[in-house]
């Protein structure tokens, strides 16, 4: 049985008060409660403050390129689908440059668990608007305010029939931990968008801003009703629902590959002699 400290990595260089600390804490607690050991899981990240996540935890890790978290996670999962693969990305990372990969990972329904640190800003490059920054917000390189509509990742996910769609808040740690565990337990691709205040550069979407808006999705809500889920996903303003918005039971990408049904690819013997008979037949 692993302990919380077993997942502890280097000392974080995040700003004091950063929402990422709460995500890290919830992650460690969720892993321990799920009975997972550090060597049993792999974390992939991209670029941004979220990209540093694997530096600050201890398990198998890969820090990839900006926006390219999901292709790496998909490759890992296909090589060894016996291993849980977790992707940690940011809003600038995954909803911007990596947007195309997100769409196709959701379509495939590869069993990768995606946790998006959504702080509605680029933190690493010091305070430019991200794809989730509200229209009109004035920032360093948006002196006239953001001129595009913000991306609604959860509405996008429900529209694409993503098999697990949830939102958490870094200021509600226990609830977040529960969502991480649910995402891990789900068969198929899981998107957990985590509202995560950037205390240094985002002076709009603060802890207070989120706290006064976030509410737990009602217990009698049925997350398997896609139309209702779409309506829920559109709620982002004075009230912001947190919890599981949508879940379905689509077959996974791994399920559709007969070769890996019994044994993960990495555990299969690589034996070219099996090809010999086929080659002899044609040559």
């Amino acid at each position: 049985m692993a302990h919380l400290d077993d997942f502890e990595g280097l000392t974080p260089a995040w700003c004091p008060g950063c929402g990422n600390f709460a995500i890290k804490k919830a992650f460690k607690e969720a892993m321990v409660e799920l009975g997972l050991e550090p060597h049993q899981i792999t974390i992939v990240s991209g670029i941004g403050q979220s990209g540093k996540f694997p530096h600050y935890v201890r398990c198998n890790t890969f820090n990839g390129l900006h926006g390219r978290t999901l292709p790496v996670a998909t490759g890992l999962r296909l090589a060894n689908h016996g291993m849980p693969v977790l992707a940690f990305a940011g809003d600038g990372d995954c909803y911007g440059e990596g947007g195309n990969h997100l769409i196709h990972a959701m379509r495939r329904n590869i069993s990768v668990k995606l946790f998006v640190h959504d702080n509605q800003i680029y933190g690493l490059t010091k305070g430019q608007a991200s794809p989730t920054t509200a229209e009109g917000t004035v920032m360093k390189i948006q002196p006239f305010g953001v001129q595009s509509e913000p991306l609604n990742p959860l509405a996008l996910a429900v529209a694409l029939d993503c098999s697990f769609v949830a939102r958490g808040f870094a200021g509600d740690g226990d609830h977040l931990k529960g969502l991480i565990k649910e995402a891990m337990d789900h068969r198929g691709f899981s998107l957990l968008d985590i509202l995560q205040p950037c205390v240094t550069f985002n002076k709009v979407n603060t802890y207070d801003w989120y706290k006064t808006r976030c509410y737990h999705i009602e217990p009698d809500y049925n997350p398997e009703n896609r139309v209702q889920a779409f309506e829920k996903a559109l709620e982002f303003g004075d009230r912001i629902p947190i919890g599981i918005l949508y879940r379905n039971h689509r077959h996974t990408y791994e399920d559709g590959i007969p070769m890996i049904k019994e044994t993960p690819l990495v555990k299969q013997p690589f034996d070219l002699s099996a090809m010999k008979g086929i080659l002899e037949e044609f040559y």
Binding site: Y122, L124, T125, K126, Q128, K140, I141, Q142, P143, F144
Partner: peptide, 20 residues
């Protein structure tokens, strides 16, 4: 058209400042 990346970002920021 531009996108931030260290160490180029101040070019982008400076041009934005001029624009503002």
């Amino acid at each position: 058209p531009a996108y931030p990346i260290t160490p180029q970002t101040p070019i982008y920021e400076r041009l934005s400042e001029m624009e503002s």
